[in-house]
Amino acid sequence: ADRVLLKTPIAFGSHLPALGTPIKWVSEQLPVMSDNTLKMKIYEPGKLVGAKEILDAVSSGKVNSGYATAGYWQGKMPAAALFSAVPFGPEAGEYMAWLYYGNGMSLYQEMYDTNGYNVKVIPCAIISPETSGWFNKEINTPEDLKGLNMRFFGLGASVMEKMGVSTSQLPGGEIFGALEKGAIDASEFSQPAIDKLLGFHKIMKYNYFPGWHQQATVFELLVNKDAWGKMSGGQQAIVENTCKASMTNAIAEGESMQFEEMAKAQENGVEIRYWNDTMLNAFEEKWLEVVEEKTAADPFFNKVWSDLSTFRKGYDLWEANAFLPRTTK
């Protein structure tokens, strides 16, 4: 086959553990596995194109591939959020089960196809839960949340708004300053190992878990369909399977590095808290209201949501019986 160079702008810096490191790993594996007939050159965010422009750039063929997360496209296709992270949604194992062995993947591709995007989508990394956010006071009841200004992104923000929180979506770099000066009172961002890079532990007292809004996050490799069609069957298989291997690699890396950072944060005086049942129930109740609005507003969101929900109902029987309770805390 002809040699192929995938020029791949990425949505997360390749130095960011579990967020950006997986695609770097993929770019290192591809030439080795393909005996150099397949290369990937990654472009850090903004070098060729900004994170939110990746879908457009790949679909139009301005670049032949890109790495992002579908949540970025929820303004273009509301259902996209469901292929990225779902509040009170599946953990990584269940999520992958739905994607690979349920209808997940066919719906995922169908979303791009029916919306006229000329891309082939391949899940290429998955990470475990994010933290639920950083606060300067204890939150025991929904009352404690009312009136807070909080940085929150995506579907979770809609839930927080229903809880009486005023949300904003400051970019990563602005958050620390805004928190330090009190322009916002609280913020979520990502996993402990990433949050640490933003320095939240230096100024915030309480780090809340679990991240109900993002139990697992999927990242995608988008390949322009014309470019995909020109690749040989072998090359396509190499890309698909390297990405599949990357799912394993990403979650292993992510799982390996959080506890150390959490312990360090504790040493620095951060208190790690677990939402009480009242709070979790309140979040879930509001989330279901959000779902109701979304399913009513967008038929495809409804379709994906129903399929995912059906799968999860079936899975419940297994889930309720198969696992030991999490009793280490």
């Binding site: 939110k52 303004g75 296709m77 006229g116 579907l155 979506q169 979304k294």
Partner: peptide, 9 residues
């Protein structure tokens, strides 16, 4: 696709 803000709100 009648694009909306990437933030639901």
């Amino acid at each position: 696709i009648n694009e909306h803000s990437e933030s639901p709100s």
